[in-house]
Amino acid sequence: MRVFWAKSYEGATMADLSEAMGINRSSIYAAFGDKENLFRRAVERYRAGPMSFVRAALAQPTLREVIVALLQNSADFFGTPGNPNGCLSITGAIACGTESESAKALVIEWRTQGEAALRKRAQQAQRDGDLDKSINPVEFAQYISMLLAGLAVQAVNGATRSEMKRSVEMALRFMDV
């Protein structure tokens, strides 16, 4: 997971993966079939492990608490020393050659699912009276997704946790939720 996170799907070589896992190439193929299946498993592990804070954030009682938790936890996570910079959903396969389209499609689907979950939560907030009726939940979810992706890109660019936290505070100041 960390190799793909740090080097991307295309950048991670079988030698890198073999070294990180402590097994030879033939064992990787025997256990996972191919690099693409290994990447799929790494994405699943990343979502269930390091990114599990997203599910917890979406369960917060108010939409403002959801957004605060998503943005602050993302800044904390992306700024954790020792982690590769950014987010696997962004760095893993955002730009790939034609032979890696399935890896790219996998992370696009993952980001789309995340935005759909956020849209659903915003729609619930609107039904509960927690989000103004004049705000389009689809556009709201796209906006928050853009902020999250922006934090991940800033982390890749070398932004520190405190710099990202200040950006989150700025975004929250201007958000009427």
Rank of each mutant, 00 (worst) to 15 (best):
R127M: 10
E169I: 07
T62A: 09
M164S: 05
S26I: 12
G33L: 11
Y46Q: 06
Q72E: 15
A149M: 08
A69L: 02
Q60P: 00
L118I: 08
M175I: 10
F78C: 10
Q113W: 08
N85S: 06
L106S: 03
R161Y: 07
L151S: 01
E101F: 11
E65N: 10
A12Y: 02
R41L: 14
E99I: 09
F4E: 00
A159H: 09
P61A: 14
E44Y: 01
D130T: 06
S167R: 14
Q60D: 06
M21T: 01
M1A: 05
R2I: 07
G97N: 11
M14C: 02
Q60H: 08
P61D: 14
G11D: 08
T62G: 02
P61C: 05
T13C: 02
Q72H: 11
A75I: 11
V66S: 01
G49T: 07
A105S: 15
R25A: 06
A159T: 07
V68M: 05
V66I: 14
Y143R: 12
R2G: 03
L63G: 03
I67L: 09
R40Q: 12
L58D: 09
R55T: 13
N37V: 04
A69N: 06
Q123C: 04
S26M: 15
A149N: 10
D176L: 10
S167D: 14
Q72M: 07
T98S: 15
A15H: 04
L118A: 08
E101M: 14
A152C: 06
S102W: 10
R121P: 01
I28M: 12
V54W: 06
V68C: 08
F53V: 04
G97M: 13
N24P: 03
A93Y: 04
G114Y: 05
V156G: 01
R40S: 13
R121E: 02
A57D: 09
A116Y: 01
Y9H: 02
S8I: 00
A122S: 04
L131C: 03
D34I: 08
K104E: 14
A75S: 11
D76H: 08
K7E: 07
N136C: 11
S100M: 03
R127C: 07
C96Q: 15
C87Y: 00
E163T: 09
L131N: 06
A171Y: 13
V153P: 03
Q124T: 12
V3A: 01
P137M: 12
V153R: 03
E109M: 05
S8H: 01
A20R: 10
A159I: 05
N24Q: 13
L70F: 05
M51R: 14
A15E: 15
E139T: 08
S52L: 09
P137S: 11
M164L: 13
Q142M: 09
R25Y: 10
M14Y: 11
D128N: 11
E44F: 06
E139P: 00
N85F: 00
S27R: 12
G79F: 01
I108W: 08
